[in-house]
């Protein structure tokens, strides 16, 4: 056989085999996704974690997030849209997954703000001004702290809470549960305990819609 024909033939065979493997894997995964078991809520959810949306909502989106994560800040308005689109039916719970350098200090600020009911305004400021307090994906806790000074916070209490054991325990709990749930990247979503396997806004919306049709 001609060498060139041999080469082209084998190349084509390998590429076709690859495409076949990908499509077989994808179809298998979609059928598996439908039967994914929900993780028990006591691991996915945490008492007193910040939530938004109606407390009676039967669909809970749990988001493991890092305030320094760019994709998280891109998803922030999208997740807000989901709550607005299904009023009373969907709520979101935020849990900390400080994967970036320096983020462990920044989530302490957020949790301390949460104790004074200012989690959402604080996270709003941090996401909107993310470039101002992160440098090359490294969080600068001092700059983040400076941005939060305009919030109506009891400053002394806030400073005490930031370094308190209570706050660091809450964060530790989130990190432990994140490890159990294999949260390796942020944002990681769980809808009523079901993990979002194929990442994307469309896929998240789909997962939420499925949960709504199951719950209501």
């Amino acid at each position: 056989m001609n060498k060139k024909t041999l080469f082209i033939g084998v190349s084509l065979a390998i590429v076709l085999a690859f495409i076949a493997a990908v499509s077989i894997f994808k179809t298998e995964q979609t059928s598996k996704n439908k039967n994914v078991k929900a993780t028990p809520t006591n691991i996915v959810e945490r008492m007193n974690a910040p939530t938004k949306g109606s407390q009676d909502a039967k669909v809970t989106i749990v988001e493991f997030f890092d305030p320094a994560c760019e994709t998280c800040s891109v998803f922030y308005p999208l997740v807000n849209n989901l709550i607005k689109r299904y009023p009373g039916k969907v709520k979101v719970m935020m849990r900390y997954a400080p994967l970036h350098k320096g983020s462990d200090q920044v989530v302490k600020l957020l949790e301390a703000a949460h104790l004074q009911g200012q989690f959402w305004p604080a996270v709003d400021i941090l996401f909107k001004n993310q470039q101002r307090w992160t440098r090359h994906h490294v969080a600068q806790p001092q700059s983040a702290r400076a941005l939060l000074t305009n919030l109506p916070l009891d400053n002394e209490q806030f400073m005490r809470d930031v370094s308190s054991e209570n706050v660091s325990n809450m964060i530790k709990q989130d990190i432990t549960d994140g490890k159990t749930l294999k949260v390796r990247a942020t944002p990681q979503f769980f809808v009523n305990g079901k993990p979002l396997i194929n990442f994307g806004y469309k896929q998240l919306t789909q997962l939420v819609e499925e949960a709504i049709s199951e719950a209501y």
Binding site: K3, L6, F7, V10, S11, I14, F18, V22
Partner: peptide, 22 residues
């Protein structure tokens, strides 16, 4: 040499399959 190339190509695609697809 052609065999080496086949091995390298299969390995490359397999490793990409593991990381990008799986």
């Amino acid at each position: 040499l052609f065999l080496v190339w086949i091995l390298a190509t299969i390995s490359t695609l397999a490793s990409l399959f593991f990381s990008e697809i799986m």
